[in-house]
Design a binder for these strands. Structure first.
Lengths: 127, 127, 127, 127
DNA sequence: GTGGTCTAGACCACC
DNA sequence: GTGGTCTAGACCACA
């Protein structure tokens, strides 16, 4: 994972990273996620930054902590993560996308077939 | 203009920059565009990098050069620029978008109303 | 190889050099050609200059690259190389030749016997 | 005039220059040609070099000198110049040309139409 | 190792 | 002034 999107703090980028794992069910509800220090090493980031991410996700209700044990995915994390990512997507990615589509004269309908193709490909690779 | 999109060379980012101006008719066909050195100073970039962009756009048929005079927008630049940007959009932006949409369970139809809202806003700001 | 033909950039002279090897089948389709740095050392030229040549030949479809591996001669390189060299010959060498022929009152027919002699000599040396 | 053909001494390049003027009848038989010093200045060359050229052309019978007056074109200079240039052409230019033609699979016949077009163009520009 | 990008600075030809 | 070429040297990603 690389951190380069200027304007987006690293701790939020890591929050995206965690939420995506939750949505993909890679990190399923109830599961223990990596410790602050572990993830900090994995992502080559300061532990304080990961701490801030976990704090943020705890407030969102995506994870909770058992003192002295670690952090765990909440039962309704998938829904919470989806809500968060969706909001993030709407506010940050969509405007950029819409600008391109507007310039190119594309409509959402024009993406249909390509999107279906993408999903098909994605599922095949998954298997 | 800032250059931060990793994975996308600066000279191609500048090409996008020029193509968007062409599509918006800010730089209309026949018009002289900034000299290599001028744009290099404006964008705080090495002249060689801008030279490379202009070379690239010359090959695409978006601009042409008069030696000793400068670079000019070709007559069919709008079409050429649209083709290039569309291809670029399809190859680079769409996959990222689709990934987000897939994760969030969104379909192209779900973007319709937001896109119409965006277009409306855009046109109001334009006026 | 020496670079002295004024008016012809070095990187294009190197392109001629490569194309001639392709036409002579010294560098046959599919073969790996010298790396950018290798050829730069061989020709006592800056690597950037060779890079520019390879970029140019890639656009012509004479060679293609495998990132991290090297450059290779394409399957239809011979045809592509011939087209390029022929165009170059027509635009650059022929006018000089025709001027001399015009001054000397020579016609293409007058070259026939000499050309046949040349080809004969060439083939003998080849054997 | 620029002197860059390596392997061909400058004084011979100037001889070509003079002979071409004779063949084009720009410097007609009997005419006084520029003095050694004059031509040396024109061509930005050392007078000794021009002296050597004139010496060479005197031996060829293309020019002769009247001591204290200057150099003049001989009566049969056109023929002599043609012989010299032709020999030069045959020995130096043709091999290079033939190599290209051989590589490209061209025959002298293939040049016919292009040469006729060239002559036509040349004569039109002359008028 | 490979290709690819970028900078800094130089020089040239053309206008 | 303009574009165009070239060098030297640096850094990156990929394999």
């Amino acid at each position: 994972m690389q951190f380069y999107e200027k304007g987006q703090p690293i701790y939020l980028q890591i929050a995206d990273y965690v939420c995506e794992r939750v949505l993909q069910n890679t990190w399923e509800p109830g599961r223990k996620i990596p410790s602050v220090r572990e993830l900090a090493v994995q992502l080559a980031v300061n532990p304080n930054t990961v701490m801030r991410t976990y704090d943020f996700l705890k407030q969102l209700g995506v994870i909770y902590d058992k003192r002295g044990i670690g952090y765990f995915v909440t039962d309704d994390a998938i829904e919470k993560a989806r809500i968060y990512l969706k909001e993030d997507f709407m506010n940050r990615e969509l405007p950029i996308l819409f600008r391109s589509m507007y310039l190119l004269g594309l409509e959402p309908e024009d993406l249909k077939s390509d999107f279906n193709f993408y999903k098909q490909q994605y599922n095949e690779n998954k298997q």
